[in-house]
Structures are given as C-alpha cells and as structure tokens.
Design a protein around this nucleic acid. Structure first.
Lengths: 241, 241
DNA sequence: CGACAACTTGACGGGCGTCAACCGGAGTGG
DNA sequence: CCACTCCGGTTGACGCCCGTCAAGTTGTCG
C-alpha cells in the first residue's frame, strides 16, 4: 500500500507526511535512477564526494563509521521511506558510509535537482529539514544508548526503536517482526561484541521480554519491554501512526 | 572581533558563514530577548513545549539526556555562536535538555518569527539547515566515540573536537585553551565515570599528549594528539578557519 | 555433501565501575 | 583572620560486566 507503480516516491512521500499536493507532484517529477542492489552493497563511502541523494524504497540499510582500530559503529538503521544521505544536499563530502543490510531498492536523485526543488517549494524544504532534525534526535538517543545503558537495556532499546519505526513505515506490527540484521549488525549498533549480543538476546528471552525464532521476534508484553528498554518514543517525533 | 555592540547576532552570523547581506540584515532585525544566566542554568528541559530558539552568544552549554537509572549523557558541547535548539522551529516538544556549563548570555528568539524569516530567505533556511546537518554529523561521531573507542582515545577525541571548535568560534588557539567543563561533564560526555576520566587524563599527561594545569590544557604535538585521538576533523564540516 | 556464514556456548581476562578516603581552593560566616 | 563547608579533583583497592579466544552447532546454498 505504501509504494505503488504510479509513484516511485510513494514510500518517501508517505514518510514526509503533510506535504502539499503541488509539492508531491513536484517531488514525483524529479529525475531519478532506480537501482536494486544485493545485501552488503555500499551506497555511499566515507570520504567520497557525493552528488546524489538516495531514497530507500525497499529493503534495509545502515549508516556507519569506522575507528582506526577497525572497530565499526553503526549510527542508524534505515527502512523503506528513509532518505539515506540528505546531507549531500548541503555537505559535499560524505562523513560516513551507507551500506545495505538486505537486498534493497533505492532512487538515486541528483542533489542539484533536489536542492533546486527545495528552493521553489518551502514546504518541501521544511519537510526535509524536519526529517534532518528527527535524524539528529535519533542520533542523540543513540549516544545515550551506547553511552549510559547496560547491554541488556541497550539491546532492548534498539529492538523497541526498530519495532516502532518498522510499524511507522507500514511494515507491520511492532510486537511481531523479523529482524533484517545479523547479530553482528546489532553488536556494531550497540557498541558491543557479537558474542555478548548473543548472550544478551538469550537473557532477554529468559526474562520473558522477547520470544525468538531465528530472527523472528515477538514481544509479548510491550509495556514491560518498553520499561526494560528505558524506551520513550518521544525522540522519534513520529507524526504518523 | 566576533561579536560587536552593533549586532547582537554577530557570533551566530560569523558561524553561519556565507550569508547574503540582505539575509544578515534580516537576521539582525529579528525580535529577541537577551538573557544572561549563571552556570548550570537550564535553557530547555526535556519534555517541555518549546516556542523559542536560543542563540548562544557568550559562554558554554551542553545538551543532555538522562537514562531512567539516573545516568546522564551529554550529547554535545556548545560554544558562542551555536544555535541551541534549532529543532524547536519544526519540532514542538524538546527531546533533550540544554544547560549552561559556565555563566552564559544568549538571545531568545520566538520560533515563529525565525520560521517566517526562513520562508522569505531561502539562503537563511539553507544555512540553518546546513547547521542542523553538521550537528547531526557531530552526533554520529559521538556515537562512534562512545561506542567503539577506549577511554584514552575517547577523551583525547573529545579534547581535539573542543580544541578545533574552540578555534573555529574565534576563541583562540587549538593547542592551548582552558576547559570550561568539570571532569564530571567530561565523564557524562564520554560515557565514563568521573573517577576514570581523572585517571585517563593523567595517563594522557604521562604519555606527553597533553600538559595540564588545572583546567588549562596545552597540546604540545597536535599531530600526535590527533593520531592518538583517532581524530579527523572532516566530520565537523568546518568552512571557516 | 562440502563450504561457508551466522549463531551459540564456555572459560578466562581486563578495562572500567564502585566504593571510599583524602586533598586543595573558593566561598561563607563567626 | 580563621574555622567550616562544599565542590571538584585525586588516588587506591576491589569487583564485575563485557571482551577475547576458542570450539562447536545449525542452516543454507552450491
């Protein structure tokens, strides 16, 4: 229901809710190349000059940076509807990498065209700016998550965020979903090791907070899970339910 | 040199470099209240409805969030010229708190007036949006910092960032400066404890990376410090030197 | 059926947290 | 002018959470 053949930008328009009709039309008229890539493909690499913006319309991706000792830190997970590198509208050098987690389809739009469009349509600029602000809010929450929560709370929090955004993107219930990422992805997102992620997922299961079957997750008691995760969805600033 | 009596917005205009003349004039005509507060004063509290934006013109501040166990995580330090809660232009509920570190002076501008101005001046909107994107980039670096670096590298990195931004704000050399924050602030920013921050600062001193006298810091060998800190200033996207 | 990636589990060690004591300087009041 | 207090900083002893290393299991794809 989110994307339809008539409009490649459907998922993005759905996420940037409350766009004017004219604005949607203008967005849909943007030049773009649609690409489908396998899992683990790089869309952006840190240090690269970037002249395009990518709109993720199907699949999952993540943004990450690496420390000089090789340690990798994922800074966000991305779902269908997310704009992956909006920053390249105004910042020319990529300060982080973007990689797919699953096979994925995205629209590659020239930054210049999108930028020109935002100058004509202030409400589009506002919607995109708002999206940037929400991104920033999520990053702040992640700083808190990796900085001040123990492994159990940290992973529970990550799962709650995924559940809520998953639902917001129209992909299904927050209480029953399938994770697209490996435990190594989870480790890199939470600042832990894969081994400890594995142990902690087991602990969450033993505590009755989640039930697992492979990567399928069921959260039986959402209230209790939210509490255990120290999760308050305010920071996601979700307008759509 | 940065701020002058003619223009309360001087520090902010200096930071948002490359604004058109008309745009600067428009900014300067914004209605505002100038306030001076002591150290540890709250400008914004998490959960609050926010109808104003604050432009820091003197002193130091930080943004932070708290975990339910009481743990506090600072997500950024702010210097003169920084806009403290630009997000309140487009997001009505504060998702984090802002508190001064030293006594500070700021301009309180009604969000509505600033928002109206951005709709008239697309280059102002662009400059502010760009500022938001840079903020987001810094948050991502902080996620990496607290998630994947050990205490020594982490604190060294924080010091490097402070040094560079300190200079960019026209406050002096990056190799010789006085920290405005306590070791507890540093602990809350790096996800460590004050005790361990203290020990690690000593280690940095013993390694000859920094020299300390109270909160005065001298970085003798900036190259070596940068390397020890895994610090690459790219993520700050600084245009001005 | 072999190869490989992801997951799982155990044993052990270390970096950082916790607890506690003490120091030094600034502010305050007698 | 000196006690008193308080905050920030400093240092030591000890313990735990999580990292490291290593081995084994499961599932999938060719």
């Amino acid at each position: 229901m989110i994307s339809n053949d008539d409009n490649a930008f459907g998922a993005v328009i759905a996420k940037l809710n409350a766009l004017s009709a004219g604005c949607k039309t203008a967005l849909s008229a943007l030049p773009f190349v649609r690409e489908t890539v396998p899992a683990d493909a790089h869309l952006v690499r840190e240090g690269q000059m970037a002249t395009h913006c990518c709109f993720l319309v199907y699949g999952f991706a993540c943004r990450y940076k690496v420390a000089h000792d090789g340690g990798r830190q994922i800074a966000s997970f991305n779902l269908a509807g997310d704009i992956l590198d909006l920053q390249h509208l105004l910042l020319s050098i990529a300060d982080h990498s973007v990689q797919t987690i699953t096979s994925a389809t995205y629209l590659r739009v020239p930054s210049a065209a999108l930028k020109a469009l935002t100058q004509e349509h202030t409400d589009l600029a506002e919607a995109l700016w708002r999206d940037t602000l929400i991104d920033a809010s999520i990053f702040r929450e992640w700083v808190l998550n990796v900085g001040r929560r123990d492994a159990r709370t940290r992973i529970a929090h990550m799962l709650c965020e995924f559940a809520v955004r998953h639902q917001a993107a129209g992909l299904g219930s927050p209480e029953r979903f399938t994770l697209p990422m490996t435990q190594e992805h989870i480790a890199d997102a939470t600042g832990l090791t894969p081994v400890h992620v594995n142990r902690t997922l087991r602990v969450l299961g033993e505590a009755g907070l989640i039930a697992r079957d492979g990567r399928k997750i069921v959260i039986a008691d959402w209230k209790r899970m939210q509490q255990a995760a120290d999760f308050d969805p305010l920071y996601i600033h979700a307008a759509a339910a």
